[in-house]
Amino acid sequence: MTVRVDGVDYEFSSLEEAVRFALKMAKSKGAEVQLHNGTFHVE
């Protein structure tokens, strides 16, 4: 599972870890999280 934040990809071994990271980053940026074909994008 890959989480992309500001064009940088972060790899996670589990969906749970990836979701937690994506939500944490989105909250800190006041951004939204989108899921596309198994890849999260924080914008």
Rank of each mutant, 00 (worst) to 15 (best):
A22Y: 05
F12M: 01
V8N: 04
D9A: 09
F40V: 08
F12H: 00
F21M: 01
M1V: 12
A26D: 07
L23F: 09
L15V: 13
E16K: 10
T39L: 09
D6F: 08
M1Q: 07
D9N: 10
E32L: 13
L35C: 15
T2A: 04
A22W: 02
E16I: 09
S13G: 09
A31C: 03
A18H: 00
T39M: 13
H36V: 14
G38P: 06
Q34K: 13
A31W: 12
K29Y: 12
D9T: 11
L35T: 05
F21L: 01
E17L: 06
G30F: 07
K29T: 13
E16S: 08
D9R: 07
V8C: 14
Q34Y: 15
G30I: 04
R20V: 09
V33Q: 03
A22D: 00
E32H: 13
G38S: 05
D9C: 14
E43Y: 13
Y10H: 05
L35R: 03
D9H: 05
A26I: 09
K24Q: 13
G30N: 11
K29C: 15
G30E: 07
T39H: 10
S28Q: 14
T39Y: 10
A26V: 06
V3G: 00
R4Q: 04
R4F: 05
D6L: 06
D9S: 11
S28H: 14
N37Y: 10
M1L: 09
V33T: 02
E32T: 14
H36L: 12
V3R: 00
N37F: 09
L15I: 12
F40W: 13
L23N: 09
M25C: 14
E16D: 09
A26S: 06
A22G: 01
F12T: 00
V3W: 02
G30P: 03
F40D: 08
M1W: 15
L15Y: 14
T39Q: 10
G7C: 13
A18C: 02
A18D: 00
K27P: 07
S28D: 15
S28V: 14
A22N: 00
S14Q: 03
Q34T: 14
V42I: 09
K27M: 14
E11Q: 12
T2G: 02
H41D: 08
A26F: 07
M25W: 09
A22M: 04
S28L: 15
D9L: 12
E17K: 05
Y10L: 02
R4M: 04
E17N: 03
A22L: 05
D9F: 10
R4P: 00
L35S: 05
H36N: 09
V3S: 00
E16T: 06
K24I: 11
T2Y: 12
A18P: 00
G38F: 09
A31H: 09
F12D: 00
R20Q: 11
G7A: 03
H36M: 11
K27T: 15
D6W: 05
V3Q: 00
G30L: 07
N37W: 06
N37C: 15
R20L: 10
V33Y: 03
A26H: 06
V19P: 00
V3Y: 02
A26M: 09
Q34C: 15
E16V: 10
E11F: 14
A26W: 09
R20M: 11
A22V: 04
K24L: 12
R20E: 13
M1P: 11
H41V: 14
S13T: 11
T39C: 15
V33F: 05
K29M: 13
E17G: 03
E32D: 12
A18F: 03
E16Q: 10
V3M: 02
R20W: 06
M1E: 02
L23W: 10
L15T: 11
A31M: 12
G38L: 08
D6P: 00
F40R: 02
M25P: 00
T39E: 07
Q34R: 14
E43Q: 12
E11I: 12
E11R: 12
S14N: 09
H36I: 15
V33S: 03
E11T: 12
V19Q: 08
Y10S: 01
L35M: 10
A31D: 05
S13E: 10
M1R: 10
T2F: 13
F21D: 01
G7I: 02
G30D: 09
L15N: 06
S28Y: 13
V5C: 12
H41Q: 08
K27L: 15
E32R: 13
E43D: 11
Q34V: 14
F21C: 06
L23H: 11
E32I: 14
V5D: 01
V8D: 02
R4Y: 04
V33A: 04
E11C: 15
E17D: 10
A22C: 15
N37M: 07
T39K: 13
N37K: 08
A18N: 00
G7P: 00
V19R: 11
H36D: 06
S13Q: 09
K27A: 15
H36F: 12
L23T: 10
E17W: 02
L23D: 12
V8S: 03
E32F: 13
D6N: 07
N37P: 04
H41S: 05
A18R: 00
V8I: 11
M1N: 08
M1A: 11
A22E: 02
A31N: 05
Y10W: 05
G7W: 02
M1Y: 15
F40Q: 08
T2M: 11
N37D: 10
V19H: 10
K29F: 13
A18I: 02
A31P: 03
G30Q: 06
L23S: 06
V19S: 05
Q34P: 03
D6C: 13
S28N: 13
V19I: 13
G38Y: 07
D6G: 05
F40T: 06
S28K: 14
L23E: 13
K24H: 14
A31R: 08
F12K: 00
V42S: 06
R4V: 08
Y10V: 02
Y10T: 01
N37Q: 07
V42P: 07
D6A: 05
H36P: 03
K27F: 14
G30H: 10
L23R: 08
V5L: 03
V8G: 01
F12W: 01
A31Q: 07
M1C: 15
S14L: 05
K24R: 09
